[in-house]
Design a protein around this nucleic acid. Sequence first.
DNA 1: TTAGCATTGTGAAGGAATTCACAAGCTTCT
DNA 2: AGAAGCTTGTGAATTCCTTCACAATGCTAA
Lengths: 211, 211
Amino acid sequence: MKRIAESTVRRLSLYLRFLEDFEERGLATISSDELAARGGTTSAQVRKDLSFFGSFGKRGLGYAVPELAARLRDILGLGREWKVIIIGAGKIGSALAQYRGFTQRGFHVVGVYDSDPTKVGKRIDGFTIRDLATLEKDVARDEVDIAVLTVPADAAQQVVTRVVKSGIGAVMNFAPVQLQVPDHIALKNVNMAMELEGLSFALANRTGLDE
Amino acid sequence: MKRIAESTVRRLSLYLRFLEDFEERGLATISSDELAARGGTTSAQVRKDLSFFGSFGKRGLGYAVPELAARLRDILGLGREWKVIIIGAGKIGSALAQYRGFTQRGFHVVGVYDSDPTKVGKRIDGFTIRDLATLEKDVARDEVDIAVLTVPADAAQQVVTRVVKSGIGAVMNFAPVQLQVPDHIALKNVNMAMELEGLSFALANRTGLDE
DNA sequence: TTAGCATTGTGAAGGAATTCACAAGCTTCT
DNA sequence: AGAAGCTTGTGAATTCCTTCACAATGCTAA
């Protein structure tokens, strides 16, 4: 299979969201043009994105909504349930543990971890916070797929190294550091401060000094 | 000024983080090679990124750490304090209101809003939750720069329209919808579910079927 | 059954971002 | 002062991504 650009995958997620919307409203077909309008892109882009995976449309008609949705779910690996652990039971970790959006899309939180002994054993929204010391054992037993890291920046690299060793294949990192992981591990960084700096840059350079 | 790619701005944020690290450790100079190694990129990329804004290095030596850090802060608009409001005092909104990383980098939260009457007036970590109804008045009075949206998906478009009308120039959206805003508004989307789907895709397509 | 219309799928063109590669310039050593 | 050794800054080459443009096809109506 050809290498798929990250931007393409992001757009597929987006299309799927719109399709589910259409599905609920009982619409039978949709054109690349309509999908593009919603997603703020072009119809050619939509078709090209889909073409990497096959041809799902009918010329003259568009795409059958439920079929295309099903295909996208399949492509994105949403046909199955993924097991997720959250490491770091601070504010963000706790908020994520309770986030409905995860479960809705097949991401099942199976454990919440912290290394702080005063937190271990406490419950948050149905989860008993586990001791980070048991990480490796639990991951193997529970067949965890994805780790979400919401630990302090200075602990993140150490934790991710353990996570990777324990056999997890994908990591979502909220700590504001650049983690080193082997090539075969999927890593996404979510960095609030960095996003805000993007906005700050835009605001600061808005003063119309184009030349 | 030439249009700067978003990816470039992201990397500048990253470089700045490393530089501040070096600054603390009292290092005087750093080469593009060292910056690149930290950021997982190449030295040519680092130099190209910087070259859009001027030439800050000394051939044969590298970059003076404090000077480059100062220049980057300036470029990213971090020389001043930005006023931020958080709209939506749910789990994520509350977690963000308390997030230290914002204040540290000059983003000052000046208000937290919700439309739920049972929440309005309550306090979270030093903020009294305000009624969304007073948004427009407050934004004008407080000269707010950035709005962070952590409202439910079906309310997001309506809220952002009000936010934009009230004169805010930058929006960070956590709701899983694609918002429509005028061109001159800076908009960043943070979508946890979409990030997870990126990981899911990577996991599902990992099965080594390259051809 | 054929004409007319709509929309896909895709090579080819165009544009944007990254990487290459090297001259230019600063520092240090002798 | 000259030579050797680094490292920057930047055009040129390359790679990657997006947009164009149109033949191919399916649907509808007469």
